[in-house]
Design a protein around this nucleic acid. Structure first.
Length: 597
RNA sequence: GGGGGCGUGGUGUAGCGGUUAACACGCCGGCCUGUCACGCCGGAGAUCGCGGGUUCGAUUCCCGUCGCUCCCGCCA
């Protein structure tokens, strides 16, 4: 405790309780609100711990009272006074400190504040651009304080757990080499090597594998990652991963530790008990039943495949799709049979935007149906479809007929959209699920070429290694994703540690030895020097915090985020630089000059 | 790269061919000894994002542009 003669705090505002009654305290903080009653002034003093009421009255100290009269919002002050029980009837049950108040005997203004662009208040809605421009002030708001504190707690919980499990926190370079795969790189020019560039890491993937070759066995890092792609509400160009890698493990070992990690963090940081063990869904099952590889399991509304029922139907859209090897799937939107034509049109528009050719629908009514397609279906087909979909009067059935994945995806997206509307699931309810048994490769529908579903170092399951040569599309990977409430929280895989398997995978990807050597030479070389079986995970730390605090805006959990156009409204980054800087870096820019007025 | 939404005192909104540009909060001043989103009275504060066009006249209509935002593509 600091010497009580100075202005420095002896207590935190939010900590004061009845047990402090009679105690002389010195508090530091911001003037949250001032209520001037003429002969009596109340000041709500706020620090990071919370708020406490100070009372200034001329009877206690005339000088302090005079001083309190000059206080304004967000002045930074030091207050001395005595904690006392509030008068009966004057308690405030809304405040943790509401049963006491501080009888103010002295105020010192440490710093004044001018008029503010917005109030420090969770109630007032302020445009986000204004908040970002004045981020320091915005971060004073209690909700933002909570978010950032939650971020801290979660980080400490991660470290605490992994340290106890024998993991080592190890840093990897920020200035590294550009690789052509994946997202666009952020580049950093080299002064020393004209025309050469570093790249900021998209993830420490290769380095953490090298650390396994190095024998560190268990690695983690809260790793900053960079991807120069377009932003979303849940995507920033610079973000943080909980990056983990382990040696001498197989899938079950990784899932076990990581599940316990996530459970620990939810409990430790937010006091939330997750249901254990996390259920598991195969990739195929997730797509089949939920139309997504990241299903929101807080509600049901599963997709039903009715291809067999309508395979020979007179409705060509259905039978034709099946004939061409596609599927017809239905989503029962419970209780939404009353949808208007306009609402259906809007959904159709969305479906088309997502790649559907259209959206067939049947509204189930008491003793019949309303539908533009019912007349093309036989009685038997119709009743079989209704039964398969579990339809009851008042339901709305939406159909997609397309390639298997497309049909599932369209309805999957509609399921999430409509499901969240209908069930409005509680953001404090959590439905974690491991998605396992991923395919090793995806076929690009445009080019027809095979591509890694995860990344090229992902190991196939042991029994499918031989299939690499014959039927690569059937090969399953030792890959897994953790999904919570429809958010992909993270994923990982067991890596290939055998050269022959790695080469087979490169062959499937159409990557020549030379290309492989050129791109990943340093990793392949290291693999020649004794590589343990290893695997790991990366979790999106920002998304984790989003779940813990219940926001759907990633900017609410990052102290200094970028806008959607990847600029920082606080610092005005990115910005032009001095030509001399560019010259030194051997860079000439090629920006079209603005049209002369 | 594409589509949608928004831009009016400090903040949030209303107005939508001609207004003294309205309201709430905040701010400033006054009054008030038990408030806690205190109350009451008074006041200051807006080139209606920017540029162009249509019009006798544009905050309002049109085009462009900038910024913010949501989504699609993209994000191994």
């Amino acid at each position: 405790m600091a010497a009580s003669s100075g202005w420095q705090r002896t207590h935190w505002c939010g900590d004061l309780r009845l047990e402090h009654e009679g105690r002389d305290v010195t508090l530091n903080g911001w003037v949250h609100r001032r209520r001037d009653h003429g002969g009596l002034i109340f000041v709500d003093l706020r620090d990071r711990s919370g708020i406490v009421q100070i009372v200034f009255s001329p009877q206690t100290d005339a000088e302090a009272y005079e001083m309190a009269d000059t206080l304004r919002s967000e002045y930074v002050v030091s207050v001395k006074g005595t904690v006392r029980r509030r008068l009966p009837g004057a308690e405030n049950p809304e405040l943790p400190t509401g049963r006491i108040e501080v009888d103010g005997r002295h105020v010192e203004i440490l710093s004044r504040a001018g008029s503010l662009p917005f109030g420090i208040d969770d109630r007032t809605e302020v445009d986000e651009a204004v908040r970002l421009r004045h981020r320091a002030l915005d971060l004073r708001r209690p909700v933002m304080q909570r978010n950032i504190i939650m971020r801290h707690k979660a980080a400490q919980a991660v470290r605490g757990f992994l340290n106890a499990e024998g993991f080592l926190e190890i840093e990897t370079p920020m200035l590294t080499r550009s690789t052509p795969e994946g997202a666009r790189d952020y580049l950093v020019p080299s002064r020393v090597h004209p025309g050469h560039f570093y790249a900021l890491p998209q993830s420490p993937q290769l380095f953490k594998q090298l650390l396994m070759v190095s024998g560190f066995e268990r690695y983690y890092q809260l790793a900053r990652c960079f991807r120069d792609e377009d932003l979303r509400a849940d995507r920033q160009p610079e973000f943080t991963q909980i990056d983990v890698e382990m040696s001498f493990v197989d899938t079950e070992d990784v899932l076990d530790v990581m599940e316990r990690l996530i459970v620990h963090v939810f409990k430790e940081a937010a006091g939330i008990e997750l249901p254990v063990p996390f259920p598991r869904l195969s990739y195929d099952e997730a797509v089949e039943r939920y139309g997504s590889d990241k299903p929101d399991l807080r509600f049901g509304m599963e997709l039903v495949d009715v291809s067999d029922i309508v395979a020979r139907s007179g409705f060509r859209v259905f039978s034709g799709a099946v004939k061409q090897g596609g599927r017809v799937k239905v989503l029962n939107v419970k209780g939404k049979g009353g949808m208007t034509r306009r609402e259906i049109d809007e959904l159709t528009e969305l479906a088309v935007q997502w790649g559907a050719k259209g959206l067939a629908w049947i509204a189930v009514e008491e003793g019949g149906v309303r539908s533009p397609i019912a007349k093309f279906l036989s009685e038997d087909e119709l009743s079989a479809v209704l039964e398969a979909a579990g339809a009851a009067p008042g339901d709305m059935l939406l159909f997609a007929a397309d390639r298997r994945e497309v049909a599932a995806e369209i309805l999957g997206r509609l399921r999430v959209r409509l499901g969240r509307e209908i069930f409005s699931p509680d953001p404090r309810q959590f439905a974690p699920v491991w998605i396992v048994d991923w395919p090793l490769f995806h076929r690009d529908p445009e080019t027809g070429e095979l591509d890694s579903a995860h990344h090229p170092f992902t190991s196939p399951v042991d029994e499918h290694v031989e299939l690499l040569k014959t039927e690569p599309e059937r090969v399953r990977a030792k890959a897994y994703d953790l999904v919570i409430n429809g958010y992909e929280l993270g994923g990982g895989s067991i890596r290939i540690h055998r050269r022959d398997v790695q080469e087979m995978v490169f062959d499937v990807l159409g990557l020549s030895r030379e290309e492989a050597r050129d791109k990943f030479g340093f990793l392949l070389d290291a693999f020649e020097h004794g590589t343990p079986p290893h695997g790991g995970v990366a979790f999106g730390f920002d998304r984790l915090i989003m779940l813990l605090v219940g926001t759907d805006n990633i900017r609410d959990v990052i102290p200094f985020p970028k806008t959607q156009s990847a600029s920082c409204l606080l610092t005005q980054a990115p910005s032009p630089v001095d030509p001399a800087q560019l010259k030194e870096l051997h860079i000439r820019t090629d920006v079209p000059a603005p049209e002369p007025a």
